[in-house]
Computed example of a mutant assay.
Amino acid sequence: MHTKNIVTGGKKLTEAKKALIMLHGRGATAEDILGLASHLNVADFAWLAPQATNYTWYPYSFLAPPNQNEPWLSSALALIKDIVSDINAAGISNENIYVAGFSQGACLTLEFVTRNAQRWGGVAAFTGGLIGDKLYTENYAGDFKNTPVFIGSSNPDPHVPVERVQASTALLKSMHASVTEKIYPGLGHTIATDEIALANKLIFS
């Protein structure tokens, strides 16, 4: 199960007015995803990047039946909720909390915010979709209240089918998120400079 091992950057939590939770991809590290923050307009944010145990948030594909990824998936979601509570305790409300992730971390980002839909500061999912062999709509509740969300991905992508990206976008929009989706032909499994520019414009402006 995931331990609470968080790498931080940016402003101190006690001094910041906004916070960014960053979720790394499979096989990567908290330091890796924290490096992305230097390309985003978040210099005045507190940055918090948890480290997944064994460098993975859950063992199988995000398209596997969710019970196959337990108890790791529930542990990861609980860890993020715990981090949100810590940020709240420092005086930062959820409308000033932002969540961003890449690949497996992008899937976890979308899964967490959609299970806890409310007004967040903003959400950036670089190559990801909602988790499961299908969309388990009974897991999702709340109202995003026009939270800005950016979802970018490649077509094709070796891990994330574009159909799941599109289905995720539609579900978030149905819950009143303000979603911008951009699919890049033949981008590959990476983050494009255009995605960073769009995230800065739409989410971190």
Rank of each mutant, 00 (worst) to 15 (best):
A64P: 15
E70I: 01
W72T: 12
W72Y: 14
L73C: 13
S74P: 15
L77D: 06
V84R: 03
D86K: 08
I92T: 01
N96D: 04
I97Q: 06
V99D: 02
V99R: 04
A100F: 08
G101S: 07
F102K: 09
Q104E: 12
L110H: 10
L110W: 07
E111L: 11
F112T: 12
V113Y: 13
N116V: 10
R119N: 15
R119D: 15
G121M: 07
I131Q: 00
G132I: 00
K134V: 05
L135D: 03
L135G: 07
Y136V: 10
T137M: 03
Y140G: 12
P148T: 13
S153H: 15
S154C: 10
S154Q: 11
P156H: 07
P156Q: 08
P156N: 10
P158E: 12
P158Y: 05
P158Q: 08
P158R: 04
P161R: 00
R164W: 08
R164F: 09
V165M: 13
A167C: 03
T169L: 01
A170T: 02
A170V: 05
A170F: 02
L171K: 03
H176M: 00
H176P: 05
A177F: 02
S178L: 15
V179I: 00
T180W: 03
T180P: 05
I183G: 11
I183W: 05
P185V: 05
